[in-house]
Amino acid sequence: MPDATGLELLAHDLGEAALEAVHYRGQATIVVDPAHIRTVLQTLRERGFGFLASVHGVDYYPEEPRLGVVYELLDMSRVDRIAVKARVPVDAPVIDSVTPEWPTADHQEREVYDMFGVVFRGHPDLRRILMPEDYEGHPQRRDFPIGGEPVIFTRDEGRWLEARE
């Protein structure tokens, strides 16, 4: 990973898009403005980070802006990793899709959309991927009820059948 100085330089090169550069527990992270995510990733790709290893979502409830999208980039020749974080507010969870440049992001952005409700602008096919199409809500948000149901054991079967009628 870039050392602290390298990370600062990288953040400096990104200009106003980079809000913060954090070096924590051996993980280099740049927090960026969601409006510039495509240009940021493009710049980093030109610096050698050519492999988008993962796109995932985070819910920072009750912090604001609440939702986060994390892009893990990997430089295959130098074995160098960097994480790019973008935070979006929950009432307007919109961020640009990076699928046109990084085809691997297709399904992963769909998953983030499914689980957290982040809308990726410009995604070619933004549908739910894990939950049924008619599912309501985004289950990985922290204010979403865990769900589940009481377990029906054989000894309760009579009661259950009664309740169904």
Binding site: L130, M131, P139, F144, P145, I146, G147, G148, E149, V151, I152, F153
Partner: peptide, 15 residues
Amino acid sequence: SSMGVFNNYALVPAD
């Protein structure tokens, strides 16, 4: 049978 440790939004018991 009872959704086990995944007794949440994702699973449905076979019964």
